[in-house]
Design a protein around this nucleic acid. Structure first.
Length: 497
RNA sequence: GCGUCGGUAGCAAAGCCUGGUUACGCGAUGGACUGCAAAUCCAUUUCACGGGGGUUCAAAUCCCUCCCGGCGCUCCA
């Protein structure tokens, strides 16, 4: 099956081709750790986590690099306000980033280089650019001269260099006093008093915003690599700046085969921003919803399209995710109830029976379709639709009147099916242990356990006595505590809303 | 202004590149099951594609045009 990926530069889906057979070099722009991670970050890094997972599922050897821009204006300002070192600000937000991404089941990249650890590579890159006359030393910093390579302008945004010049109007000269041209951008900013700084051939200072990514990709991948990703807003100027820097430095073009950009998260139709007061951190969202619910909700739209985030959006994700987890749990029980001691080592059962063959056939077809959806530019929405269809078939088959051995082996098949597509590929399944334990991972559960157990025992007694009124009253009481009770063949179960 | 992405049933969102077949989900309604619920299953809620032209045996899908909206052109995932 051929993987097709949308490439921002060519503006169409193209066959995925790597520089070296079987190997993928993927670079995704990481965060500037000046504040806790927000929903936009969740969307971006989940999107590229899907790329990461699917490429590995297809057998590629993926090297995934993601940077931290740990020295930058906003970080310095916050550090000054709080009277602490800028690295402290960066560090605490990097810790937050790892925490929330782990919770969201985002697999770690292979390398997380930081600007502050890449100064040497940055300086040597700037030296080369100056030698080749693509950069110059201005009053307040070293700048890249965009007009030195005009053919590279607008490669990702389709903007025309002449038009931009014409439309720039009053903004020309607004920032960067030492610029020769308003389109030029800083490679190295000379230090102002009290700012973090490193020595350089041009004077003490720190790197401009774009150069770190060029230096890091060069360091880890060399002159050219396969995938470069990031949020849609990075197309310009950040990624176009990278093209200027890297290609002018090495003389190799194109820098990247596949440029990938994920769509934005809007809040109730408006762009999420601190000034509008509609800013959601990931931690905010996780206060009321489980991490996998947020992940599911985000994967329910194609990664390139914008998402309109709302309470309803999360509620939809919650329903879908609960359904997935409930079904997974049920199937684990169908298969494993009698095999708890060797749940993992049990060999895959033989599938027998005419009825099963039909079911297995349908599931295999859906599995293939699911893979095709992922191959078509990582269409997680369509893949989830296939998974939903599969779950329906699974539930029906497992609940039908069939031989017990068949039921058990079918359960096993279904568990494996879900683990392959919903689990490995989409990262939406909890561990088998967590799934079987229900929502046990919720910290509030342990707290509520004693009181709920007591009420459930009273209710069981009332039901035993067929005192339905009393039993329902207890259920209402629990509902008022935000707890839903479900009666199953194995007795009542409860979960926190 | 320039660039770019969109406008799909009550809501939400795939499909458009590679014209011709059901999206999927939520919500709603009825049914099976249940003491009643929940969960699950079945059925109904279907002939939806911004407007107008055109191409074609056939268009949500290709072409033209118009309208509306998002985002970018300054820091931003």
């Amino acid at each position: 099956m051929a993987l097709r990926v949308y490439d921002t530069r060519r503006r169409e889906k193209v066959d995925f081709v790597t520089i070296e057979a079987g190997k993928v070099r993927m670079y995704v722009c990481g965060i500037t750790p000046y504040s806790p991670s927000h929903l936009g970050h969740a969307r971006c890094y989940i999107a590229f986590d899907i790329v990461h997972r699917w490429l590995e599922a297809k057998g590629y050897d993926v090297t995934y690099v993601q940077n931290f821009t740990d020295v930058e204006d906003k970080i310095i300002n916050i550090a000054n306000e709080e009277g602490i070192d800028y690295l402290e600000v960066a560090e605490r937000n990097i810790v937050d980033y790892y925490d929330v991404m782990d919770a969201l089941n985002v697999l770690r990249a292979d390398h997380y280089p930081r600007v502050t650890e890449t100064i040497e590579g940055i300086i040597s890159m700037i030296e080369t650019l100056i030698e080749k006359e693509h950069a110059y030393n201005g009053e307040d910093g070293v700048y890249f001269h965009v007009e030195s390579a005009p053919e590279k302008y607008g490669l990702l945004t389709g903007q025309n260099i002449e038009a931009v010049r014409a439309g720039a109007g009053g903004r020309v000269g607004g920032t960067g006093l030492g610029k020769r041209d308003h389109k030029d951008f800083a490679l190295w900013k000379f230090a102002k008093p009290g700012e973090p700084q490193w020595d350089s051939p041009w004077g003490a200072g720190r790197p401009g915003w774009h150069i770190e990514c060029s230096a890091m990709s060069l360091q880890y991948f060399g002159e050219q690599f396969d995938i470069h990703g990031g949020g849609d807003d990075l197309r310009f100027p950040h990624h176009e700046a990278e093209i200027f820097q890297s290609e002018c430095c090495t003389g190799k073009s194109p820098l990247v085969n596949h440029w990938m950009h994920n769509g934005f998260v809007n809040i109730d139709g408006e762009k999420m921003s601190k000034s509008l007061g509609n800013f959601w951190t990931i931690t905010d969202a996780l206060k009321t919803h489980k991490p996998l619910v947020l992940r599911h909700a985000l994967l329910n739209a194609h990664y390139r399209n914008p998402i309109d985030f709302s309470e309803q959006f999360l509620e939809d994700g919650k329903r879908s995710q609960n359904k997935l987890e409930d079904s997974y749990c049920d199937l684990l029980r169908v298969w494993g109830e009698k095999n708890k001691d060797h749940l993992v080592s049990l060999p895959r059962p033989q599938l027998g029976g005419e009825g099963l063959a039909h079911t297995i056939g349908m599931l295999e077809k859906l599995g293939e379709e699911c893979a095709l959806s992922m191959d078509d530019d990582f269409n997680t929405r369509e893949a989830l639709a296939k998974i939903s269809s599969a779950i329906k078939i699974m539930n029906k088959a497992v609940n039908s009147d069939i031989d017990e051995n068949d039921r058990q082996s079918l359960g096993y098949y279904c568990v494996e099916w879900l683990e392959e597509f919903a689990g490995s590929a989409l990262g939406l399944l909890p561990s088998r242990e967590d799934a079987l334990a229900g929502s046990q991972e919720d910290p509030r559960r342990a707290e509520l356990e004693p009181i709920v157990s007591e009420l459930l025992m009273k209710r069981a007694a009332a039901r035993e006595a067929k005192d339905w009124e009393a039993a329902d009253a207890i259920r209402s009481e629990l509902a008022a505590l935000g707890i839903t009770v479900q009666d199953t063949a194995d007795g009542p179960e409860w979960e926190i809303n």
